[in-house]
Computed example of a mutant assay.
Amino acid sequence: MRKIRLRQLLPVTAAALVLAGTQLASASTGSAPGAHQRAEIVRLVAKQTQSQTVDTGQKGHSLGDQLVIAEDLYQNGKKVGDHAVVCTYVHTGPDTLQCLGTFALSQGQITGQALLHLPSRSAVDVAITGGSGTYNGAEGYVHTVPAGSTERHLTFHITR
């Protein structure tokens, strides 16, 4: 196995999908997304706790290798959930990863995915692909912004 530099990957970790496990503040938009939809804006901080690269083939980055990341999620300094993401290398030179993530919160879970191009030190938007519990039927995206080598600021734009 070969470890990769987290500073290169953290800004694009699809992970990048986090929701609060405490009461969420709803923010209505100027125009309603739909008759039965409501919009929510949720801001959280993700702090990486573990990461591992799984080298499945040739030494170094090759197709099918995986990056596995775990993060704790915080809102107003209080831990509100966990985030896990698995990214698979789908192209090398430059590196491109397909990432799938799940955010576990006390009120339910949210899933998301993104295709990430490395290295990237800029903000990334991750598609919300679904949810459970309170987040059943969730859609939208998560805007992720790097805030150091092991921290990201996340803004969820959720409709359902």
Rank of each mutant, 00 (worst) to 15 (best):
31 S>L: 09
31 S>T: 12
32 A>L: 13
32 A>V: 14
32 A>F: 12
34 G>M: 13
34 G>R: 14
35 A>S: 14
35 A>W: 09
35 A>E: 12
36 H>R: 14
38 R>F: 07
38 R>V: 09
39 A>M: 07
39 A>F: 12
40 E>I: 07
41 I>P: 08
42 V>E: 11
43 R>Q: 11
43 R>K: 10
43 R>M: 11
45 V>P: 05
46 A>P: 03
47 K>H: 03
47 K>G: 02
47 K>E: 12
47 K>L: 06
47 K>T: 07
48 Q>D: 02
49 T>M: 05
50 Q>S: 15
50 Q>Y: 15
50 Q>E: 14
50 Q>F: 15
51 S>E: 06
51 S>T: 08
51 S>I: 12
52 Q>E: 13
52 Q>I: 12
53 T>N: 12
53 T>D: 03
53 T>Q: 09
54 V>L: 11
54 V>C: 08
55 D>L: 03
55 D>P: 08
55 D>E: 14
56 T>G: 09
57 G>F: 09
57 G>D: 08
57 G>S: 12
57 G>A: 10
58 Q>Y: 06
59 K>G: 00
59 K>L: 01
59 K>R: 06
59 K>W: 03
60 G>L: 04
60 G>R: 01
60 G>W: 00
60 G>E: 00
61 H>T: 06
61 H>V: 10
61 H>F: 10
62 S>E: 15
62 S>C: 13
62 S>G: 15
62 S>P: 07
63 L>D: 01
63 L>V: 09
63 L>A: 08
63 L>H: 12
64 G>V: 04
64 G>Q: 04
64 G>S: 11
64 G>W: 09
65 D>C: 01
66 Q>T: 12
66 Q>M: 14
66 Q>S: 01
66 Q>L: 13
66 Q>P: 02
67 L>M: 02
67 L>N: 03
68 V>E: 11
69 I>P: 00
70 A>M: 11
71 E>G: 05
71 E>V: 10
71 E>Y: 15
72 D>Q: 14
73 L>V: 15
74 Y>W: 07
74 Y>P: 08
74 Y>C: 06
75 Q>K: 15
75 Q>I: 01
75 Q>S: 10
75 Q>H: 15
76 N>F: 02
76 N>M: 00
76 N>H: 07
76 N>E: 07
76 N>Y: 08
76 N>L: 04
77 G>Y: 04
77 G>E: 05
78 K>N: 00
78 K>T: 04
78 K>R: 09
79 K>D: 04
79 K>F: 03
79 K>H: 03
80 V>Y: 03
80 V>C: 09
80 V>E: 02
80 V>L: 10
80 V>M: 06
80 V>G: 02
